[in-house]
Amino acid sequence: MSAAVVDLSNKVVLVTGGARGLGAAVARAVVDGGGRVVVTDVLEEEGAATAGEFGGAARFVRHDVTAESDWQAALDFTGAEFGRIDGLVNNAGTSAGQLLEHETVEHFRQVVEINLVGVFIGMKTVIPAMRAGGGGSVVNISSAAGLTGLALTAGYGASKWGVRGLSKIGAVELAEARIRVNSVHPGMTYTPMTAPVGIRTGEGNYPGAPMGRVGVP
């Protein structure tokens, strides 16, 4: 069954971590809905290839979400290529399983920088442009790990709880500017980020979920 197509005619959306996995699926959904998309990622070859699949409706720019200068450059690039920005999908993220007592401070900080601080910088960067355009939509990709306590997710879980809270704050603060902010909380989904933990797609291969299967992008 194919996903329902949402009408995004004439909308311009920036998708971080868009080279593969969920980000690439989001980018495809934007184009399928009639919109234009700027795919950003640190994976330059994969990102450029993904954007290339969508023809003139897509562009790619290298983008480290932890760097303010990269965020401003990505926004400037979006404006130069498509003239506006209507949506931001903060999808870029990282994860690695480790018991809290064995987690290093260095790795914990790295995960939080990418998963949470990157979302904060992105929201902060696009707000003025969305205000000037009369509104917009920010979708922050959190996780089921941002709704409950899951073992082996010290940095990841903490950052995704933070994304959930930051989204709520943004929704309240930006409503008057007609900027909607939402967080999305996927369960286990088969992507290049999660594949190394050994999950498999298909019925019955993930008994930890009620339907016994993982999601796909």
Rank of each mutant, 00 (worst) to 15 (best):
M1V: 12
A3M: 08
A4G: 10
A4R: 01
A4D: 02
A4T: 06
A4M: 10
V5Q: 03
V6D: 00
L8S: 02
K11P: 04
K11Q: 14
L14K: 04
G17L: 09
G17T: 06
L22S: 02
G23I: 06
A24T: 00
A24G: 03
A24V: 04
A27D: 02
R28T: 09
A29G: 14
D32G: 01
G33T: 03
G34P: 03
R36C: 11
V37L: 09
V38Q: 06
T40Q: 10
V42H: 08
G47Y: 01
A49R: 12
A49M: 07
T50H: 01
T50N: 02
G55M: 05
A57T: 00
A58D: 03
H63Y: 11
D64N: 15
E68L: 14
E68A: 15
S69D: 15
D70S: 15
A73F: 11
A74K: 09
T78A: 13
T78Y: 03
A80S: 14
G83T: 10
R84P: 05
D86E: 11
G87F: 12
L88Y: 12
V89W: 06
V89A: 12
V89P: 06
N91G: 13
N91H: 08
A92E: 09
T94R: 14
S95V: 12
S95P: 00
S95C: 11
A96P: 02
L99M: 06
H102I: 01
H102T: 04
E103W: 07
T104G: 11
T104M: 05
T104K: 02
T104S: 15
F108I: 05
F108Q: 02
E113P: 06
E113H: 07
V117L: 13
V119G: 10
I121F: 03
G122Q: 08
G122N: 07
M123S: 05
M123F: 09
M123K: 01
T125A: 13
I127S: 05
A129T: 13
M130C: 14
G133F: 06
G135W: 09
G136M: 12
S137D: 02
S137K: 07
N140H: 05
I141D: 00
S143C: 08
A144M: 11
G146T: 07
L147R: 09
L150F: 11
T153G: 04
S159R: 06
K160N: 09
W161S: 13
G162K: 05
V163Y: 05
V163K: 07
R164M: 10
R164K: 14
L166E: 05
K168P: 05
I169T: 13
I169L: 13
G170N: 07
G170E: 05
A171F: 09
A171K: 00
E176Q: 15
R178A: 15
R178C: 15
N182S: 10
G187D: 04
G187F: 09
Y190W: 12
T191G: 08
P192T: 06
A195K: 12
E203H: 09
E203Y: 08
Y206N: 07
G208N: 05
R213Q: 11
